[in-house]
Amino acid sequence: MKPPAFDYLRAETVGEVLDGLAQQGGDARVLAGGQSLMAMLNMRLAKPKLLIDIMRIPELRKIERKTDAVVIGAGVRQADLLAWPDLAEALPLVALALPCVGHMQTRSRGTICGSLAHADPSAEMPLALVALGGEVLLRSARRRRRVAAKDFFAGMMLTARSDDELIEGISLPVINGSRFAFREVARRHGDFAIVACAATKTPSGVRLAVGGVADVPTARDWPRLEGSAVDDALNAFAYELGARDDVHATARYRRDLVRMIGRDLIGEVLR
């Protein structure tokens, strides 16, 4: 269980990363915290010709508070964001979800953007990005672009990133005066979610985002729901997510969790 052979490039500037990606295209992989990629390399599931280590580029290591958003660089580790003093105030939903990402020993190395790039449908950070309606900042040697969360996740482990693009960072909106709730069910503490739900109170009603069920984390907005309308809406949403069976849970069980946890969380944020 040893990785295949590859070249290793320790980049010191973003330009070096973009050049590497431009030259090697799909044969290059960005190595940040490595908490997903290295396991895949050890199992020989991935066989890049070049790994580009971006963790010694100071400009990617920043968390920037803007007036209505927080911009998190590609080199920001999950532990860095957890330790950011403004987190609970600026990004309360992330403050709830982030401790559920892996374990302390993986959050210390793993990055926020790496989790998004990996695009596991059960992962917490993609769910938070979708629930908050954040944006992904992509950059290649040719161009820069911003992609909305709902357009970024293209399928299970698939994203809108092109082979020559670096996820330079993400932008998460700071939403004042709202309420947030997050809950996930996993087989064990720290496992990938069987179902994860994030609810936010919106100006017009409520949004529920669900991970672990569909191929991508999926958000749904409703106007203020009353009485049995909540159950009906959640039931329809649960079916639309297209749950499937796997070795850890059944589709029915997942739909049950969406209905029950969704109801609880909506109740919490609309309380």
């Binding site: 087989r187 159950d231 009906d232 039931n235 329809a236 079916y239 639309e240 297209g242 749950a243 499937r244 069976d245 850890h248 849970a249 059944t250 589709a251 029915r252 069980y253 739909r255 049950d256 209905r259």
Partner: peptide, 29 residues
Amino acid sequence: LVPARLAELVRGAEPPPPADGVAAAPARE
């Protein structure tokens, strides 16, 4: 004692999908 298996033992019929909505994929066991 996988929770989803216990669910099959104790939970009754699932709420049906809405009439105009998406049906569940057949169970594969």
